[in-house]
Design a protein around this nucleic acid. Structure first.
Lengths: 385, 385
DNA sequence: TGGATAATGCTGAGGAGTTTACTAACTCGG
DNA sequence: CCGAGTTAGTAAACTCCTCAGCATTATCCA
């Protein structure tokens, strides 16, 4: 791979970029601090940061009444509010939208319930609705949004289609990218929900320290998302992590053990049966503990296949069942010991049901970073597709 | 991640590096050609390339009797022979060493048979022997070797130890890195044989076009090596690809179908039984075809788990059985269709039994590139550990 | 032998960062 | 209330690197 040659203007671009990276994620900084972080001299940083202010990437904060010795320094701040990104979770029962600024600060989170049987058109209308609400509540227009990422269930191809399979009714025919492209001129991407949750766990969740992560989505459906060497792995056709499709792996039927456990009260809704069983197991109920053990045993085969294939540092147990991780993780660990060569750490997710939207935000931010702060600095405005 | 600031000398380094990349892998080039490739002006390239000659990275080739109009240009060449790397395959039955120059041209290949029961000390002595032979035959000293990579069977940890398991007798106690460090001051690395074969297939084999590859080592033992997004995946503890350890995956016993097929002549050695069965199947023998089908069925479960987990572009069928790929690939494809969502391409390896050593050479070359041509140019001499 | 052609070599211009020195602004203590 | 001490901002001189253009050199062909 031929590195391309460099002249003076290129050097300036690179240095300006390094100032941007030194600004971002830090509290408002003085020129001296930036010089230290970027490895440049004060005068150089001075002209660069002033250029950033002129372009709109940075902002001056005049010194207040400081109580430090010496002349108080002007501080510069990255304009995280110069643009925003949207992360959207299109679930079976709900649509969830999260608006974030360029530093990943969550500005607004809104959800709407959706009829599980709703056809794609209706579901997309709810998406439009929740986006409208978020934009109205924050006083923004679609042009203020620099990237949108949508999470859906099922393997997602490069075009954002879910043509192989998905539990969202009729969704194999839906084209969410085209739908959103009508309103947004910025990059729009669709990604699998397990993959997004995995990204979220590494960003703000329980796996921030790990570079090789298997995320388990455990609920009435079971799925997985993979992060290797710190980046999300999609696979060549976007179907990485779909080991649940293998019949020898009993992920499809594993949750049934929890639904059919004797003793579940008739009053429990279908979604609550599992929670009841977990609670009963926690209380020492023999039948419930057996059901959990059978569930874990089925789950463990697939997890073992993932672990043996990838040898991750951490396996994150997430999804709807993660609230009951306390009764699942220990039996799961025991099962895995039987199958695996090297046991990874098992951790329970704490992000709750916003993890998909959160991961979507992170991916949208990555998109913006690549486009605008990749290796040359663009003007601070929404990137085009 | 803070990109570090750049001053003029850094720029010069970068441009010099881009000249190196423009020189490598190309025939001897004129300054004008280099300027075009590197995106620099002729005068700039001129001084840079002269500096490279002074340092020993490049070499002038005075113009011969050319038949072109105009003043014939001086040509510059990358000194691929400034250093060499060693790739070594420590197998059960043999030790194989390949010496390569810095451009990946294979200079010398030597092999020695080893008693399958040989203890580690004896096996390492054979390694020493074959290295001595290669160095003597090429008139080199250990200081001319800039990196060594060794391939062994079994999962290899970061220290080059094979403590979990390996079919090499006693090898869990061996420390090949320490052994070779006594002779070589350059970086020494040990890696799993399947992983190295995967690297070789992408470098010079049948998967040069693919970025997501599953390599299958198919023989009396079955294993896998993974390349995702163009780079080898080791996993957090170096045990990626070891799905064969899962009992639900019948890789351990799959080859037995080929050993126990009725009709195998008593005269056949244990290693030749499988080859006989494949040939018989090719000739239309019912029993043999059944044995191959059973073998394929067992193999396919593990392959399907890999494919569903990783969604690769290509699955390469390699190892000792790859010569019989013609009778295996089609049944394997049929089996995979049953299990998988999206079928990857199936290709048969053509590299033969030198693929492990070849992959080792590639990894050693990568090591040299990282150390010497990473982002600043070092002097052309063996890197220290 | 002279002209055409293409590469080399040289010189001056321009841009970017660094160093150094100087000025400005603020705190603290007498 | 003022001056010493400290730190930030600014300007000038300098270095280094690339680039553009022109003169020079080497070769082939008529």
């Amino acid at each position: 791979m031929a590195t391309t040659g460099t002249d003076l203007s290129r050097m300036r671009e690179m240095n300006q970029l390094s100032i941007v990276w030194a600004l971002r994620g830090n509290p408002p900084s003085t020129v001296t601090e930036l010089a230290g972080r970027a490895g440049l001299s004060r005068p150089a940083v001075d002209v660069l940061v002033q250029a950033l202010v002129a372009e709109g990437w940075a902002e001056v904060q005049e010194p207040g009444a400081g109580s430090v010795v010496g002349r108080p320094a002007r501080r510069y701040r990255f304009r995280a509010d110069a643009g925003h990104v949207l992360g959207i979770d299109v679930g079976v029962h709900k649509v969830l939208a999260v608006l974030s600024d360029l530093e990943g600060n969550l500005v607004r989170t809104l959800r709407r319930p959706v009829d599980p049987e709703a056809p794609p058109a209706e579901r997309l209308a709810e998406v439009d609705g929740v986006i409208d609400d978020v934009l109205r509540a924050t006083g923004m227009t679609p042009d203020d949004v620099w990237a949108v990422t949508v999470g859906v269930t099922g393997p997602v191809d490069a075009a954002g289609r879910t043509s192989l399979s998905t539990p969202l009714p009729g969704w194999t025919e839906a084209d969410p990218v085209a739908h959103l492209a009508a309103r947004f001129s910025c990059p729009v991407r669709v990604e699998n929900d397990c993959k997004l949750s995995a990204v979220a766990e590494r960003w703000k969740g329980v796996a921030q320290d790990a570079d090789d992560i298997v995320f388990l989505l455990a609920g009435l459906r079971t799925g997985a998302g993979l992060i290797l060497d710190g980046t999300l792995r999609r696979g060549h056709g976007g179907a990485a992590g779909e080991i649940g499709a293998l019949k020898a792996v009993r992920w499809l039927t594993a949750p049934d053990h929890l639904q059919t456990c004797p003793g579940i009260p008739d009053t429990a809704a279908p979604g609550e049966a599992a929670a009841w069983v977990f609670q009963a197991a926690r209380d020492g109920d023999r039948e419930a503990k057996g059901a959990v053990r059978r569930y874990t045993r089925d789950l463990a085969v697939g997890v073992a296949a993932l672990v043996l294939t990838l040898d991750p540092q951490v396996v994150v147990y997430g999804g709807g069942f993660s609230r009951s991780a306390d009764v699942v993780l220990e039996p799961l660990r025991r099962e895995l010991t039987k199958h695996c060569l090297r046991l990874p750490e098992l951790r329970a997710s704490t992000l709750g049901d916003e993890s998909v939207a959160l991961g979507a935000v992170r991916l949208a931010l990555d998109e913006v970073d690549d486009r605008l702060l990749g290796d040359r600095l663009s003007a601070p405005s929404a990137p085009r597709r």
